[in-house]
Amino acid sequence: MDTYRIRGNVVETDETQRHAPLFVISVAAELADLHPQTLRQYDRMGLVTPRRQGGRHRRYSPYDVEQLRQIQQLSQEGVSLEGIRRIIELQNRVEELEAETDELRSQLRAAEQSLGGSRVFAVGPHGDVVTLARGQRPRASTREVVLWRSGR
């Protein structure tokens, strides 16, 4: 079972619980040091979108609470609500892209491991097959090169 701790107004969770809808609006408002009506307004504006339980009751995640705090800080620094919405939108997009990049990197590592140190071959200038080390390029005697990777 995943756990979370609240220390002061800081919510500590493991990564699997970061987006889990854990808090009712009154608890989220207290953690973010905001009034519950402010959270409702931010929800209507699309700044923070909590999940709904039973279609009606808002449930906020630790990530939502982090965003509420960030909204409050940016607002106090003079950023407009529309500017804050755009900042959050861009941050969410960056987070999605980082997750996608991590997934693609892990797929690439898995593919490389499944090939098990495969070698790269090229056709030499006289039609002969030349073995190359990974990262090595064939010497170009012409502009045509044919590459083939063994599929062990």
Rank of each mutant, 00 (worst) to 15 (best):
E98S: 03
G55D: 02
Q107W: 15
R58L: 04
R85K: 14
P62N: 07
Q91Y: 01
G78Q: 04
E100N: 07
R58P: 11
E66F: 00
R93K: 13
P62C: 05
L81R: 05
V65T: 09
L74Q: 08
R109Y: 05
R105W: 13
R85Q: 10
L97Y: 12
Q76F: 00
Q73N: 09
S106G: 01
E98A: 02
E98M: 08
Q72P: 02
R69S: 01
R93V: 02
E98G: 00
L68I: 06
Q67T: 13
I88W: 08
E103S: 10
V79L: 13
D64E: 11
S75C: 10
N92W: 02
E95Q: 15
Q72M: 04
Q70M: 09
H57D: 13
S61A: 11
G83W: 12
I71H: 08
R85L: 07
S80D: 11
Q91D: 12
E66S: 01
E66N: 05
E66G: 00
E82M: 12
L97D: 12
Q72W: 01
T101S: 13
L74M: 13
S106R: 15
D64R: 09
L68C: 04
Y60R: 06
E89K: 08
R85I: 00
E100C: 00
Y63L: 05
R56L: 04
L97H: 07
R59N: 03
L90H: 13
Y63K: 04
I87N: 07
R105E: 15
V65N: 07
L104P: 03
L97F: 05
G83Q: 12
L104D: 04
E103C: 03
E77N: 08
E100V: 03
S106H: 12
V79I: 15
E98W: 03
R56Q: 13
S75D: 11
V79Q: 08
E82V: 09
E96M: 03
I88L: 15
E98L: 07
V94A: 06
E89P: 00
S106W: 10
I88V: 14
G55A: 00
L108K: 14
T101N: 15
I71Y: 03
L97I: 09
S80F: 08
G55L: 01
R109G: 02
R86Q: 15
N92M: 04
R59C: 02
Q73V: 10
I84E: 00
Q67F: 00
V65M: 08
D64Y: 06
T101Q: 15
P62T: 11
Q91T: 06
E100P: 01
E89M: 06
Q73F: 06
S75I: 02
R69N: 09
T101K: 15
Q70E: 15
P62V: 05
R109P: 07
I71T: 06
R93M: 05
Q91E: 14
R69V: 00
R109S: 14
